[in-house]
Lab assay of single mutants.
Amino acid sequence: EAEIKAARERAIVPLEARMKQFKDMLLERGVSAFSTWEKELHKIVFDPRYLLLNPKERKQVFDQYVKTR
């Protein structure tokens, strides 16, 4: 159900806005820029903003977040 709702939101909200919300979530959840995606996943997986991006986009935004922190 959450994935269906997220898919609707992905269709409406522009990618750039969704990427910003995802980055904000990473900051708010205290995701370490010195860790790996796999180790940090448990901090963010239950946040509704996690589903704003598809899996490939999530990883790309995380990688970008790590490089710029």
Results as ranks from 00 to 15, higher is better:
Glu1Trp: 04
Glu1Tyr: 02
Glu1Ala: 04
Ala2Arg: 14
Ala2Ser: 13
Glu3Asn: 06
Glu3Trp: 03
Glu3Cys: 04
Ile4Cys: 01
Ile4Asp: 14
Ile4Val: 12
Ile4His: 08
Lys5Asn: 13
Ala6Arg: 12
Ala6Tyr: 04
Ala6Glu: 15
Ala7His: 11
Ala7Phe: 05
Ala7Lys: 14
Arg8Asn: 05
Arg8Leu: 05
Arg8Asp: 15
Glu9Gly: 13
Glu9Arg: 07
Glu9Tyr: 05
Glu9Leu: 13
Glu9Asn: 12
Glu9Lys: 13
Arg10Ser: 15
Arg10Gln: 08
Arg10Phe: 05
Arg10Gly: 12
Arg10Tyr: 07
Ala11Gln: 14
Ile12Gly: 08
Ile12Asp: 08
Ile12His: 08
Ile12Cys: 07
Ile12Pro: 14
Val13Gly: 06
Val13Leu: 14
Val13Glu: 07
Val13Ala: 12
Val13Lys: 12
Val13Tyr: 12
Val13Ile: 07
Pro14Ser: 08
Leu15Val: 11
Leu15Tyr: 08
Glu16Ile: 13
Ala17Ile: 07
Ala17Cys: 12
Ala17His: 06
Arg18Gly: 03
Arg18Val: 02
Met19Pro: 01
Gln21Thr: 12
Gln21Val: 09
Gln21Ser: 13
Gln21Ile: 06
Phe22His: 00
Phe22Ala: 00
Phe22Arg: 00
Lys23Gly: 08
Lys23Trp: 05
Asp24Pro: 01
Asp24Trp: 05
Asp24Ile: 14
Asp24Leu: 11
Asp24Ser: 11
Met25Gln: 00
Leu26His: 00
Leu26Ile: 03
Leu26Asp: 00
Leu27Cys: 09
Glu28Thr: 05
Glu28Cys: 06
Glu28Trp: 02
Arg29Gly: 03
Arg29Tyr: 04
Gly30Cys: 06
Gly30Met: 04
Ser32Pro: 03
Ser32Asn: 12
Ser32Tyr: 03
Ala33Pro: 14
Phe34His: 12
Ser35Asn: 09
Ser35Arg: 04
Ser35Val: 02
Ser35Gln: 07
Thr36Arg: 05
Trp37Gly: 02
Trp37Gln: 03
Trp37Ser: 02
Trp37Cys: 02
Glu38Phe: 03
Glu38Tyr: 03
Glu38His: 12
Lys39Arg: 11
Lys39Met: 12
Leu41Val: 13
Leu41Asn: 15
Leu41Trp: 05
His42Arg: 11
Lys43Ala: 02
Lys43Cys: 02
Lys43Asp: 02
Ile44Trp: 01
Ile44Lys: 00
Ile44Phe: 15
Ile44Arg: 00
Val45Cys: 11
Val45Leu: 09
Val45Tyr: 06
Val45Ser: 08
Phe46Arg: 15
Phe46Gln: 15
Phe46Cys: 15
Asp47His: 01
Asp47Cys: 02
Asp47Pro: 00
Asp47Tyr: 00
Asp47Ile: 00
Pro48Met: 07
Pro48His: 14
Arg49Trp: 00
Arg49His: 02
Tyr50Met: 05
Tyr50Gly: 01
Leu51Trp: 09
Leu51Glu: 13
Leu53Arg: 00
Leu53Phe: 02
Leu53Gln: 00
Pro55Ile: 08
Pro55Asp: 11
Pro55Val: 07
Pro55Arg: 11
Lys56Asn: 10
Lys56Tyr: 14
Glu57Gly: 04
Glu57Asp: 10
Glu57Pro: 01
Glu57Leu: 10
Glu57Ile: 05
Glu57Cys: 04
Arg58Leu: 01
Arg58His: 03
Lys59Tyr: 07
Lys59Ser: 11
Lys59Met: 10
Lys59His: 15
Gln60Ala: 12
Gln60Asp: 10
Gln60Tyr: 13
Gln60Ser: 13
Val61Trp: 01
Val61Ala: 12
Val61Ser: 09
Val61Leu: 06
Phe62Trp: 13
Phe62Met: 04
Phe62Ile: 03
Phe62Cys: 01
Phe62Lys: 01
Phe62Thr: 01
Asp63Val: 06
Asp63Met: 08
Gln64Phe: 07
Gln64Val: 10
Gln64Ser: 11
Tyr65Gly: 01
Tyr65Met: 13
Tyr65Leu: 09
Val66Ile: 09
Val66Gly: 08
Val66Cys: 12
Val66His: 05
Lys67Ala: 14
Lys67Ser: 15
Lys67Glu: 14
Thr68Arg: 11
Arg69Glu: 15
Arg69Phe: 15
